[in-house]
Design a protein around this nucleic acid. Sequence first.
DNA 1: CTTATGTGA
DNA 2: GCGATCACATAAG
Length: 529
Amino acid sequence: MVVIVSAVLTVAQCRILDPQIAAWLLDPADNASCFQDLVTKHYGRPAEPPAQPLGPRKPLPQSSLVSSSLCLLYQLMTQGLWELFSSMELSMIPVLAAMESHRIHVDKEALKRTSEMLGVKLKQLEQEAHKAAGQQFLVSSSTQLRLVLFEKLRLQERCENRKLPKTMLKQQQSTSEAALLQLQDLHPLPKIILEYRQVHKMKSTFVDGILSCVKKTYISSTWNQTSAVSGRLSAKQPNFQALPRQPVQISKKQYVQGKDAELVTVHPRDMFIPREGWTFLAADFCQVELRLLAHLTSDPELLRLFLDPGPDVFTMLASQWKGVPEQQLEPEDREHAKRIVYSMVYGAGRERLSGILGVSAEQASQFVDSFLQRYKEVQSFIQRTVQLCQKQGYVVSIMGRRRSLPHIRSADWAVRNQAERQAVNFVVQGSAADLCKMAMIRIFSLVSSSSSLTARLLAQIHDELLFEVEDSQVEHFAALVKTTMESLQHIDSLGVHLKVPLKVAVSSGRAWGSMSELHLPPASPPPSP
DNA sequence: CTTATGTGA
DNA sequence: GCGATCACATAAG
Ligand SMILES: [Mg+2]
């Protein structure tokens, strides 16, 4: 008891000891819906017995509040989570509070115009879909689409050589993108549906959905610290972390004869703009999870990719795989290579991978084999991680974040394999989350204690921080952010010493969708006189 | 492959 | 009419 009290006093000072965060660190998978559930759950001692069946709530005595809170704090200490709790997660609270208080301005009129334009386009696509199907149907209904494609047109019978995906839970014929791509040479309808889906998503979520979150001329997301099991943050209303990276081209029908169809570019990120006199500044950890994987595996080939000076890893791989020089690659090619790499290292099966690669399942498994053959230590890291998780029931990130995975000992093959992939993914994704949070805390602290810096943190997109900076301070602040983030390769106090350097790219612009990279001199920022 | 949130049926 | 569930989209790695 004395130990707990002194630890609490050392850390608390005037800060809050948030029990919800404490409970989430102990078991990130468990989402206590409210404070009372939390108290009831941790009243007895460990998190195990659901003493009260978590339903209708009885009033609890004050003593149980104190008891359950102390119990949570005690468990944090015994499980080696105290440092993470006190110096990372609690320090995030004022950072997130500041982020929520900062308004992100939007071009509301442009959003309204695109909403109308997309509405017209959707009606056209709906007509085309009905014509191609030879009947009217609700294009946005996957149930109705399944009937048209597989019962009326019976397209599955005309492509028996390649196998079509099934829906996850009910094992029906899927109408997902992967399925429609397989069907698109057999009939005009799948292609129309693919475009309809793209435009519909754009309108409903990224134009109308954003508009519904706009207050006056700005938005501000709600940031959740305890909703991701990996330690990542999440954002809602709007989900600022899921806005499309690539713009979408829409062809407008031309009513003037002899003219080509007008192409309009819709880019939701361009709707977000800084205030007059200010500039957006983004700082992005380059290939953060792959660098962490290099560190965790000590794979010589993987380490070499980051220790030797060379081109961007994903660009290099895209170039090799596509057989095209790096200068001729589109941004989509790099994104594609990135998706392939992460899918492989996190254990994608050959069917899934064949969908991503656009080749047969046999070719896909050959591709994985040759990849894992080249980076041999990745496989032994996976085995090591799984074995350790089987032994102790949980895995940990580089900063001691923990995830319990009881299913790792399941007798069911599918259940156990999923837990194994989750274990491996957690170690890497959780470690990346640790680094990104440390970066936010350090930069926030620098800005808070500076008398001149006015930069405001607007958002975190997992490995990227978005700031609004006074025009005159952009270069200076960019240098400060870059060096602060890259210095996290070594954190003495936590015993973190990464075997590879961290690389941070900074960019700035007058709209979030139109940022250009800043190339700063390699030196540190000038110390103020 | 993992981690999220949003929309529509 | 409301909430849960499913399928499908987007993002990040
Ligand atoms: Mg990045």
